[in-house]
């Protein structure tokens, strides 16, 4: 995208055109800040954290923000939900404070963290008042091609239109499998695609959703409708459970 854009700029007659090939992953990996836009802070599916003192927060904060004063943030790792998945956006009295918090949540595994760099001072919308909510909650929005946990469990109970596909390894399934499932390890899926019915929708799962996601193109290529369960699947003593 960047090289195509740079090429267009050259065609428009610009002479001083550069491309930062490492892009956002390279920038973030080398420990540099990412800023969130106002739109994202206002309406994105985020965990927004106000790092200021309690009094300042209660007097006026950006709507939806939770208050975790910077000094107490190190003790609150366990209170942040799904840290690897949830985009955590932080703001404070100063950019330096926000940077400290941003680095901290990144160290905890937050992949989508960012900074609202203007803090309260540059917030254009109305501010909210009052104490911080008791708990930080966040729910992942289901992506395209995903099946909800509830629908998946219905298929486990039995649904003639759907079939569960377990793509875990042979070792992994020795501890159990879901009912109404067929088991084909991901690395065998292309060779054994003929074993799957074409008139049923396949709901693929593994232990997280990553491998199931990888199986989908092969299924679609074979003309099979498929969706993926993004959830943690654990089996013990023949019984499997899935949690979001």
């Amino acid at each position: 995208m960047s090289t195509a854009s740079a090429g267009l700029a050259v065609k428009m007659g610009y002479k001083n055109v550069r491309v930062y090939l490492q892009g956002t992953p390279g920038w973030s990996k080398t420990g540099h800040n990412m800023f969130a836009s106002e739109k994202f802070v206002k309406s994105g599916n985020i965990v927004l954290i106000d790092l200021r003192a309690k009094e300042a927060y209660e007097a006026g904060h950006i709507p939806r923000a939770h208050n975790i004063p910077l000094a107490s943030l190190p003790d609150r790792e366990d209170d942040l939900p799904s840290i690897q998945k949830a985009p955590v956006v932080v703001y404070g009295d100063t950019l330096a404070d926000a940077e400290k918090a941003y680095m901290m949540v990144k160290k905890w595994g937050c992949k989508k963290g960012s900074i609202w760099h203007g803090g309260v001072a540059t917030w254009k919308g109305p501010l909210a008042k009052g104490p911080t909510p008791a708990e930080i909650t966040w729910k992942r929005q289901m992506g395209k091609g995903e099946v909800s946990l509830a629908d998946f469990m219905k298929a486990v109970e039995g649904n003639p239109q759907q079939l569960i596909l377990d793509v875990r390894t042979n070792d992994e399934v020795t501890d159990g499998r879901f009912a109404n499932s067929v088991h084909i390890p991901l690395d065998e899926i292309e060779a054994r695609i003929g074993e799957l019915p074409k008139d049923k929708e396949i709901l693929a799962h593994c232990t997280t959703g990553a491998r199931a996601e990888m199986a989908v193109p092969a299924l679609k290529k074979a003309g099979i409708k498929a969706r993926v369960l993004v959830a943690d699947v654990e089996c013990e003593g023949g019984k499997c459970t899935a949690t979001e």
């Binding site: 960047s2 090289t3 956002t24």
Partner: peptide
């Protein structure tokens, strides 16, 4: 200087 970047 026009600098362009994307996701990699």
């Amino acid at each position: 200087m026009l600098v362009f970047y994307c996701g990699g």
